[in-house]
Write a protein that binds this DNA or RNA. Sequence first.
DNA 1: TATGAATGAGTGTTCATTCAT
DNA 2: TATGAATGAACACTCATTCAT
Lengths: 196, 196, 196, 196
Amino acid sequence: MPRTPSENERIRRATTEQILKTAMTLFCEKGYYSTSIDDVAKQAQISKGLLYHYFKGKEDLLAALVDLRINDVLVVMNAAVAKTTPSEQIQHIIEGALEDVSRQPEVFRFYLNLFTQPRLDPVVAKYSQKLMDEQARQFEIQTDMFVRLGVAEPRQRSLYFSSTLQGIMLMFSTYPNSFPLEKLKAQAIAEFCNNK
Amino acid sequence: MPRTPSENERIRRATTEQILKTAMTLFCEKGYYSTSIDDVAKQAQISKGLLYHYFKGKEDLLAALVDLRINDVLVVMNAAVAKTTPSEQIQHIIEGALEDVSRQPEVFRFYLNLFTQPRLDPVVAKYSQKLMDEQARQFEIQTDMFVRLGVAEPRQRSLYFSSTLQGIMLMFSTYPNSFPLEKLKAQAIAEFCNNK
Amino acid sequence: MPRTPSENERIRRATTEQILKTAMTLFCEKGYYSTSIDDVAKQAQISKGLLYHYFKGKEDLLAALVDLRINDVLVVMNAAVAKTTPSEQIQHIIEGALEDVSRQPEVFRFYLNLFTQPRLDPVVAKYSQKLMDEQARQFEIQTDMFVRLGVAEPRQRSLYFSSTLQGIMLMFSTYPNSFPLEKLKAQAIAEFCNNK
Amino acid sequence: MPRTPSENERIRRATTEQILKTAMTLFCEKGYYSTSIDDVAKQAQISKGLLYHYFKGKEDLLAALVDLRINDVLVVMNAAVAKTTPSEQIQHIIEGALEDVSRQPEVFRFYLNLFTQPRLDPVVAKYSQKLMDEQARQFEIQTDMFVRLGVAEPRQRSLYFSSTLQGIMLMFSTYPNSFPLEKLKAQAIAEFCNNK
DNA sequence: TATGAATGAGTGTTCATTCAT
DNA sequence: TATGAATGAACACTCATTCAT
């Protein structure tokens, strides 16, 4: 007897998630190019054919993961925007971002790696660009916060802020075991969350 | 009669440089994995066989480029150390690093990409690690400067400094056309080059 | 619906056999080094990729063939051991070995060629050694037969027997068209199958 | 000032010998296919270009070595023919052959390997054939000795003799450290050197 | 005689993707 | 939905040989 449609739907969801989780893990461990579709299918305990049933190809896996990432960033940003004072908003950005990276440094590292991919890489550049575009969008919102904070040159301040925050994330994800994340977080909050 | 040894030496040097330059360009444009040895040989206008006469393989090309990069970093660091006051030293690090990245943002981007490579990538991880080790070495020297500068928590300050500087370089190499590098440089110098 | 596992098993078996048969033929004709994987795939009417689906590489092909050969030798030896008198046992070794070589002289020739491969050949030596080890094992069993036959110096006699038998096989596989195998077989049986 | 012609001639001879010796050593160690021209030139301490000045190519090296081998065999055979009685002649063949193989088992092994090369190997078969032809020529001479010895079926006897002798050489060159060559030599002489 | 830079065809191998069932 | 057999283009690398000097 055939499965019910809802049962099918449940299976689809579970399998999709399983594949994505496996792909994320392997991409983080070995990188996109050094991970084969065979690796993913084997580790996800499904057949290669089935994987292609769920995703159009290797690139499609990457696309899905990038969308997930962008969504994560958006969640933090939206929560920040919901705060009342610009000071709280910026603080939330710092805390959200560092919370993210501290939970899964390799994941952040993977996206950062993708982000820094050469511009003409025939496969990967598209997703690198997508991440950059999204970051640019976030940047505009964040700059508004600095405007409302009343700093002298808000755009420049916002850039400096982004640089510091990205730099902390980069350093932490590089040396996750020895980097005093909390202390640097405090320092960043002290520096950026009030109009000096 | 054979060529004189010095003539051979000249040829070797020129061809080696030509190959490395081409490899650097292509790796920056398309990335290590998406650049084939054929691409490099063709663009360098030599035969594939000759490339293997000069380098043991694709990986050896990468190794040579990483060594060049490490040397570049060392040059800046040594010049910084040669300065008299810690304030000047730190300023030199900032200026040297940003000078580097502003001259060839794609090159920095490439090394940053390598730097953020997943830890288990079978080929590339080794060179990623090498860059990380070198950075750690630089960090110790730099921390001494902050000690001599007399700041409260020099190690933490040095980390925060590195984060900011790396962050600026990351952001600039991402948006080289719209990033006001000079202004941010000034801001960084103002923040880190004297004992507040 | 996927193929049933047993159907897959059938396909695997058939294709594996097809590949091995082709490889054996080509190796016998042109030798291991002068046969390319492309040759094997083409002649076996499969794609190169599929060959690698079944065998890890060219060397693995050779390994499989060597295992087959060792098995053939074991079959003869086991049948010999099963005979009651040592005289019959030795006769069975002679007949089994010469039967083998007369059926497929080129195959024997190929294994002999492998057997005589230089000891340091980076690829092939391993299999040469494997054949030698197996022969040494057979030799011990065979020597027991001469012990039971009651000859004066059984080990030496066993060696002389092996030498003669190997020599006949070598000569026959070299000149299969003009070598009077039956006559020499009779002569060997006459010489070795009873305690003179 | 130019070298004298005779000086040049001396150099030519010495270099030729040096190359051949090196090639023989390497072919014996690693086999013809696994030895590169580069290997030979490096080990012989000359440039690749010079090697091509002395030999037309890799195949030509093999050809020269095969000629040397054939000459060695001829020397033994001629000395055998010079003996007065057929019994002494056959004894000389045994002793000469076994002396050869015992002095340099790897060299014999190499030629045996060549001898057993598949018939269609595009490069090597020609030399394999040459060795076989030469052996056939020797065989005729040797058969005459058995005729003169007065055995019943001299041709068959001669074949059986060759088989035994080749077999001993094969076995010895395979296990040079544990094979009691002298004892087997005695046994062969006892068996073949008088009209039983 | 002598060198080693230079070539390019050929080889083993990988892998994303398709297809028959 | 699910399997894994099958494909073929692409890739890194080797090596006998040639050539300019």
